[in-house]
Design a protein around this nucleic acid. Structure first.
Length: 465
RNA sequence: GGUGGGAUGGCGGAGCGGCUGAACGCGCCGGUCUUGAAAACCGGUUUCGGGCUCGUCCCGAACGUGGGUUCGAAUCCCACUCCCACCGCCA
């Protein structure tokens, strides 16, 4: 949700922001018009109400007195009192009629304004590269473990051609797609044996680093939430198609399954004025995430890349409304993930998302992509080139989300209540991250070496298969 | 699924037609006292909207949300949303 005051003062910033994100910029002017119309009506009504109140104070008590007298009065006095009361009542009653008209108008115009308001996106920051599509994202930097030279092919690095995670894991009975589909349809899977253990190991490792190394507060929040939560966290209305709605044939509890732990973590303090001393709030959670993947039909249908349900360790930071602090946290949160991926010795790159790839709520977003040998173009020899695949996404939202969530703190300097800033980033999403792990750690014989960092979480197992 | 109770400021909690933007307590801020602190005492401390002579300024509105009654509603009536308790059912 954007700041309407700022919109009135800098409409071009929002028009341009919408255009940069490939959204309909006309919505900005629709919002301006709706805002203007509503305010005009509110202003007139408020003035009338004020006048009415003033009159009440002046003549209201008199009317009360006269009404009492009327009851006790004799016939001749009755007529006089009645006239007097009628005269006194005339003005407030005239106001009332007009006031009612205006109140009706407010009731009509407010939802109209709100409907457009939630659709206007946060403008991208000026330093975010402008682009037309994800193809215009900019690589910031890459990292590779000592044993992997990114300039060479997988075979040149390891002495054999890579198998895909699907082939590797199926051969070792770590995953069962057929039975997953039997139970839950397309994009479903069953993890088994050390496949399930590896999945758990990465989640536990990621969760632990956030708690033990970076001081985040571990949380378990409901993944089943009210609509209010998803509107507040800005997943609705834009992303409504991608969310599962839970309902019975006979009743609808109005609950939705969250697509990320971010929703629950951010909504924890919805409608609160948090103590400024408690900021920045740093939360981490591990939760199952549900996504309908509407609109991605036919994309990444094979394997564990794009699935309806997965588990994710997520980090969020809620801090003071300070751009420098917000930006610093963004960098730090990316750093936490880099440490994790380096501990896992997975090649990755940081990708600055361009304006077109941002999503409505973000001012800035940096993705982290891990190298996945099975992705990319398939060569003449039938071997895929390998490619980076998105595993993490770090968003900087300023107060856009907290404004919707009505999440504020009292600034001791200015003594005013201000909306917090919020940020979020993946720590580890599995099983997607099993793809680079399994594929990078595969051996010529089809076995999979367990990354050092995960062995404590696998009861010391060093190799699968 | 059934039956009750409730929703008031940062928090707790009064008020139950005009004197209430709202008692009282806690918290917080400032002051007095003190070498300093605590205690005590005194004063202050809601949010939202609008205005311009942008000032620690003026005006207005708001007691879950929306409507109604009334000259006047936190207070009465209706609907909705949410919370709580008990019973049943399930674990």
């Amino acid at each position: 949700m954007i700041d309407l005051k700022d919109l009135r003062e800098n409409p071009d910033k929002y028009r341009d922001g919408m255009a940069a994100k490939n959204y309909n910029a006309d919505l900005v002017d629709e919002l301006l018009d709706a805002d203007k119309a509503l305010r005009a009506v509110i202003h007139e009504r408020e003035q009338l109400t004020a006048e009415k109140n003033k009159l009440s104070k002046e003549v209201g008590q008199q009317i009360g007195q006269l009404s009492k007298q009327l009851k006790a009065a004799g016939d001749d006095e009755k007529a006089r009192l009645q006239t007097q009361i009628a005269e006194l009542k005339a003005r407030p009653e005239a106001i009332k009629a007009r006031e009612q008209e205006l109140a009706d108008k407010v009731a009509e115009l407010t939802p109209k304004r709100d409907e457009v308001w939630v659709l206007v996106a946060q403008p991208p920051d000026p330093d975010v590269p402008r682009g037309r599509s994800a193809a215009d994202n900019v690589e910031l930097r890459t990292w590779n473990p000592s044993w992997f030279d990114a300039g060479k092919s997988f075979a040149e690095n390891k002495g054999f051609d890579p198998k895909s995670h699907v082939d590797l894991m199926q051969a070792l009975d770590l995953v069962d797609f057929d039975r997953g589909t039997k139970l839950s349809g397309a994009r479903s899977y069953v993890l088994k044996r050390d496949g399930m253990r590896l999945h758990n190991a990465i989640l536990r490792f990621a969760f632990d680093t956030m708690i033990n190394d970076h001081g985040f507060v571990p949380v378990s929040a409901p993944p089943l939430v009210r609509e209010r939560v998803l509107v507040g966290t800005a997943f609705f209305p834009h992303g409504k198609d991608d969310v599962y709605h839970i309902a019975n044939p006979t009743s609808d509890d109005g609950l939705y399954l969250t697509g990320t732990g971010e929703a629950g973590l951010m909504a924890l303090h919805m409608d609160e004025i948090v103590d400024v001393e408690s900021l920045p709030l740093r939360y981490t959670t591990v939760s199952t995430c549900f996504r309908r993947e509407a609109g991605s039909a036919g994309k990444d249908t094979a394997g564990l890349y794009r699935i309806h349900q997965f588990d994710k360790v997520e980090q969020v930071v809620i801090c003071k409304a300070d751009e420098a602090e917000s930006r610093a946290w963004h960098k730090r949160m990316l750093g936490f993930v880099e440490l994790l991926l380096q501990a896992l010795e997975l090649p990755y790159r940081l990708l600055q998302c361009c304006t077109a790839d941002l999503g409505p709520k973000n001012a800035d977003m940096v993705d982290i992509e891990c190298w996945m040998p099975s992705r990319g173009e398939i060569g003449d020899d039938g071997v895929p080139s390998g490619a980076y695949g998105e595993t993490h996404s770090a968003s900087r939202l300023y107060d856009y989300q907290c404004r919707r969530l009505n999440l504020r703190y009292k600034d001791p300097e200015t003594k005013s209540t201000v909306y917090c800033h919020s940020l979020n980033n993946t720590v580890a999403a599995s099983p997607r991250i099993l793809i680079p792990i399994v594929e990078m750690y595969q051996n010529a014989d089809g076995s999979i070496t367990v990354p050092n960092a995960l062995r404590p979480y696998m009861n010391g197992v060093e190799k699968i298969g």
